[in-house]
């Protein structure tokens, strides 16, 4: 029999049970931030342990795991995290979105529409969208309880008045199930519509702020917007991925060095597995 070095899933069963209880509550109250006793884990602080704790609390031996960071399966963080989860659980790994049952991510939601049998776990560094208008956590909690979102709306209004536009790149605020205001950190606006009436379950974990929240399948997720200044995703007309040619995926630019040593910018799909799959199709 294969001997595991650690407890299955690294954290003890009681802690995992507590995380699962918080998850159940989070699913029952879509968009509501549920406090939980976040543990210290042997990974770098900046990476955020919230998502990892959710994954470890959920993952079963038969699960197939995919880990992405910045949309990339091969980034150092993604590789380290995947190795840690695999070593402590023995689950199989994949880079193919369609093959995964649990996907842990930080910045992106995969481009393919997720299925009902898939769970996306998001790492969240900053939990509360009310931090823009109410830095005091206790008062912000009361505001959520009363759905007191007037000041958040004024914040949006003033953003339009000052900039003529909704100048919010990531961390876009949404109203979940017509009730709770929720942050979409740190996914780009491009991914925000994917949360709306999805088939998959989305779980959000913040380790440092000790909060868990969820968007269950088939839940309404409405970005804060105005009739005359609607929410817009990032989109540059005519721009395509330099690798797969896709014109409607979220693109990122990176510097590459040419053979002659010159540096130039290349724009490609941010979702590397999506891009690879498209390139594989002749």
């Amino acid at each position: 029999m294969h001997e595991l070095h650690y407890t299955y899933g690294l954290i003890d069963e009681d802690s995992k049970r507590e995380v699962r209880r918080a998850l159940l509550k989070a699913v029952a109250l879509p968009g509501h931030q549920v406090p939980f006793a976040s543990r210290d884990l042997p990974i770098a602080r900046g990476w955020g342990t919230g998502g990892l704790q959710i994954t470890l609390a959920l993952i079963a031996p038969e699960d197939v795991l995919k880990v992405i960071d910045q949309g990339d399966d091969e980034s150092v963080n993604a590789v380290n995290l995947r190795r840690l989860i695999a070593q402590t659980t023995g689950v199989s790994l994949t880079a193919v979105t369609a093959d995964a049952t649990v996907i842990q991510t930080r910045h992106r939601i995969p481009e393919e529409r997720l299925r009902a049998d898939q769970i996306l776990v998001l790492q969240v560094p900053m939990v509360d969208p009310l931090r823009w208008v109410e830095p005091n956590l206790e008062r912000a909690t009361v505001m959520h309880g009363e759905a007191d979102y007037g000041r958040m709306w004024v914040y949006m209004y003033e953003s339009v008045v000052r900039a003529g536009d909704l100048r919010i790149a990531t961390q876009y605020p949404v109203i979940v199930a017509d009730r709770y205001l929720m942050d979409t950190t740190p996914i780009p606006r491009w991914d925000v519509p994917k949360l709306h009436q999805a088939d998959a379950l989305f779980l959000f974990g913040a380790g440092r702020e000790k909060r868990i929240y969820a968007v269950p399948p088939h839940t309404s997720v409405a970005p804060l917007e105005f009739e005359d200044v609607p929410f817009r995703v990032e989109y540059t007309p005519g721009q395509r991925c330099a690798r797969c040619g896709c014109g409607d995926s979220f693109l990122t630019s990176h510097a590459v060095s040419d053979a002659d040593g010159a540096t130039r910018w290349v724009t490609t799909c941010s979702d590397t597995s999506f891009c690879a799959a498209r390139q594989a199709v002749p």
Partner: peptide, 25 residues
């Protein structure tokens, strides 16, 4: 709210009443 504009303070009541058109607000 002293950090908001005067117009924003008035607008808050309208936004709370589900006004969602900046020009109309």
């Amino acid at each position: 709210e002293m950090r908001f504009s005067v117009g924003g303070n008035v607008a808050e009541k309208l936004l709370l009443a589900r006004w969602r058109n900046v020009a109309a607000i």
